[in-house]
Design a protein around this nucleic acid. Structure first.
Lengths: 237, 237
DNA sequence: GCAAAAGTGTTACGCTTACACCCATGG
DNA sequence: CCATGGGTGTAAGCGTAACACTTTTGC
């Protein structure tokens, strides 16, 4: 390896710096509908308009750190599924100033969500089919995030991040039906899921949606990781 | 929509700006091996070390513009497949200065590549299995780009961007074997490809690799686009 | 005429899909 | 006792994968 330079080289000094932001597309599932966490801005510019939550990236943090900070400040949650979506860098995308935005999408367990913070920051869960217009290019980010969610959920078990850690199979099926905007046959869905060998059945039942009750399951991350190293391809679709 | 603000709001002014770079992972296929275009740096820091090609993003251009500019300057080519990989933003990733890098991967038709520019800029095509160490986190970028190439090539016909516009089926198969690091059965590969209905056979033959000669084909982008709008899923793997 | 790559069909198996009824329980 | 959602099996069809020999032609 070449030796490490100790001073900032001149051509670094000549380069012009830019504003860098992160914006988070936050998905949640309440057992019925797929939702997005947005907020109503209090400050200008765009006061009273709806926006994704975001922030400028500080020099002392990575973009992931920035996204985690934003998520924590607006939701009170720490460890959430968080993945990069895309960079939005059209030079006129933000009339405030030249600013590139790194969009991240996050999956959140709605149950864990703190109501108090929701009020403090004017955040709202809104169903995807009744979203208001969002500021700047945020609408576009949402469209892209949805596509990405579909693509990703087809081959990775990320849907489980949207459910409580203990979930029932009908719950999971409803989620998949929301994400993929189509229905699944309950027998085939269950059969496929169980044949993948990555969920374990618990002895408890959830009785909140039926009198008979439905067995709870847990996703087995260890087993999944072992299998996928061996070339196993997760898919429920 | 809220009214457009005419002055830069204060909290934009308070935010600290960052250096933003693009780095390009450029894949090529010479008919035999999958290769990467890298260059030997002439300037400090890291003079004589190998690096991906890249540049700082100018305030007057989007990150895609910057990547296109870099690609053009180093290869002389205009329209190349170019897609975002990932943002690298560890605060200490570049000892020169705090700098986030947006990695893009590109697929290039090696035949089109201009030899003159290669000499001018010290660029080299290097087979993936004999890459030298690269500066900064560029090794990591290459690993990630390869994974992404595999993922993407599995369900999108991007492999064709690495071949001449007119190609033979055995050529395509060799490319796929390189990308996926496994062999395919020639009969099944051909059958599957033709059943997808997205390549058209030409009357010409390519005789460069055999005495018998092999029919040339062309990818039919119009047909592919029409099909994929209807939910058709491209896959050769 | 022979070496070297191109081209061609069939069969077995596994996975996916379609489909209808009984079970358990709370009210 | 009945309404509601949970849970179960089978058969048909389709796509995938395995497999070997003939064709062409430049040397």
């Amino acid at each position: 390896m070449p030796k490490k330079s100790t001073e900032v080289p001149t051509y670094y000094q000549q380069a012009e710096k830019l504003l860098v932001a992160v914006d988070c597309i936050i998905f949640g599932f309440d057992g019925e509908k797929l939702k997005l966490l947005i907020f109503k801005r209090k400050l200008e510019p765009f006061a009273d308009a709806y926006s994704l939550i975001g922030s400028f990236v500080h020099p002392s943090e990575s973009t992931v750190d920035a996204a985690r900070r934003v998520l924590h400040d607006f939701t009170g949650l720490e460890a959430i599924f968080l993945e990069e979506l895309k960079v939005y860098s059209q030079i006129d995308r933000d009339p405030g100033d030249r600013c590139i935005s790194i969009a991240k999408y996050a999956l959140i367990r709605v149950n864990d969500y703190h109501k108090a913070l929701s009020d403090r920051y004017n955040t709202e869960w809104v169903a995807l089919d009744s979203l208001p217009n969002l500021v700047l290019d945020h609408d576009h980010m949402v469209t892209d995030a949805l596509e990405q969610l579909k693509r990703k959920a087809q081959f990775y078990p990320i849907g489980f991040e949207l459910l409580p850690k203990k979930f029932t199979i009908p719950m999971l099926q409803r989620l998949y039906e929301e994400i993929f905007e189509r229905n699944f046959d309950a027998r085939n869905f269950r059969k496929k899921l169980l044949s993948l060998n990555v969920v374990k059945q618990l002895s408890e039942k959830d009785k909140s949606t039926s009198k008979k009750g439905s067995f709870l399951y847990q996703f087995d991350y260890k087993k999944y990781n072992r299998l996928s190293e061996k070339g196993f391809q997760f898919s429920l679709v």
